[in-house]
Amino acid sequence: MIRGIRGATTIENNDKQEILTATEKLLRVMISENKIDAEDVAQIVFSVTDDIDAAFPAAAARQIDGWSFVPVMSMREIPVPGSLPMCIRVMMTVNTAAKQEEIQHIYQGGAIVLRPDLSTVKENN
């Protein structure tokens, strides 16, 4: 079955290293919590708010061993007034036997406010 796994995080500064570090941390938790193997990933789409432009968050996937062939893309979010600033979102499309309700969507930092109904604190892995 093909499923989407969502994740999001926030950063403090529009800084290349901070963007890559926060994104890699988010990806590693998404991978761990959902027991994802790179071979099962169809694609990963990353989006950022307008206030982030110092780096492509998709580059963080390349820092994870075995993930260099996963197709990735970075794009901008729609700039809706009042939306969460300094936010990086991830949509990972994977092949999995997990049921929809078994998927662990990961929200870290200030992004927990986006889906508090799905969020459990999973900051480190």
Rank of each mutant, 00 (worst) to 15 (best):
M1C: 12
I2C: 03
I2V: 15
R3F: 06
R6V: 07
R6P: 00
R6Q: 09
T9A: 04
T10D: 06
T10P: 02
I11R: 05
I11E: 05
E12Y: 09
E12L: 09
E12A: 12
N14C: 08
D15R: 08
I19E: 01
I19G: 01
L20A: 05
T21A: 11
T21S: 13
A22Q: 11
T23D: 05
E24M: 11
K25E: 11
L26K: 05
V29I: 14
V29W: 04
V29E: 02
E33V: 10
E33H: 08
N34K: 03
N34I: 08
K35E: 15
I36H: 00
D37Q: 13
D37A: 14
D37I: 10
D40F: 10
Q43A: 14
Q43H: 11
I44C: 01
I44P: 03
V45R: 01
F46G: 03
S47I: 03
D50K: 15
D50F: 10
D51E: 11
D51K: 11
I52N: 06
D53T: 08
A54M: 06
A54Q: 06
F56R: 05
P57Y: 03
A58W: 02
A60I: 02
A60S: 11
A61D: 06
A61W: 02
R62D: 08
Q63H: 10
D65G: 06
D65R: 09
G66D: 07
S68I: 08
F69H: 09
F69D: 13
P71H: 06
V72N: 04
M73G: 10
M73F: 07
M75F: 11
M75V: 11
R76D: 13
I78F: 15
I78L: 15
P79E: 12
V80Y: 13
P81H: 12
S83G: 11
L84N: 08
P85I: 13
P85F: 14
P85C: 14
M86S: 15
R89V: 06
R89M: 13
M91P: 00
M91L: 15
M91C: 09
T93K: 00
V94K: 00
N95H: 12
T96N: 01
A97R: 03
K99W: 10
Q100N: 10
Q100K: 13
E102P: 02
I103P: 00
Q104D: 07
H105G: 04
H105M: 07
I106P: 00
Y107H: 04
Q108Y: 04
G110S: 09
A111R: 04
I112E: 11
R115W: 09
D117L: 08
L118C: 09
L118F: 12
L118T: 07
L118I: 05
T120V: 14
E123N: 12
N124Y: 12
N125K: 09
